[in-house]
Amino acid sequence: MLSDKEREEIEAEMARYPHKRAMVPEALRIVQTHRGWISDESVRDVAELMGMSAEEIDTIASSYNMIFRRPVGRHVILFCDNVSCWIMRSDAVRDHLVKRLAAGPGETTKDGRYTVLPSACLGDCHHAPVMMVDDEMHGNLTPEKIDRILERYT
């Protein structure tokens, strides 16, 4: 069941688009903001609210990177594995991160704190290697810097 807050937020957005289908990505993002991820149940709830089928919702949900169809940790680390970062040896930094967290790409730490996801180029290539934790960018990463960053999130 969607919360009243979620419903309100979704309905508030509806006015922006001439067709309700256009609200689906927005609705999914709103629900994900509240719940961290989109479960099968959330797919059905959004479908019901939009008067669409679960398939019509999931065809969208399953096609986007940033809609999580599996549970994620409290913080999502988007680790850039793209060309500029790769050249700047992001591999080594990532290996350190993965070892520290004991969670590989796509996995969540045991304590549910972090999920590490490989990401498309984050558009901060002159600070490579970079990663994004929740809304925050971190650049010029080194193993030491990673250690300091990880302590800032609970």
Partner: peptide
């Protein structure tokens, strides 16, 4: 019909139902 669709992306697209 509304209960058959395509899911996923790139070379991992799936044609079926939600369940």
């Amino acid at each position: 019909g509304s209960d058959l669709d395509v899911f996923g992306w790139h070379d991992n697209v799936y044609f079926g139902r939600a369940e």
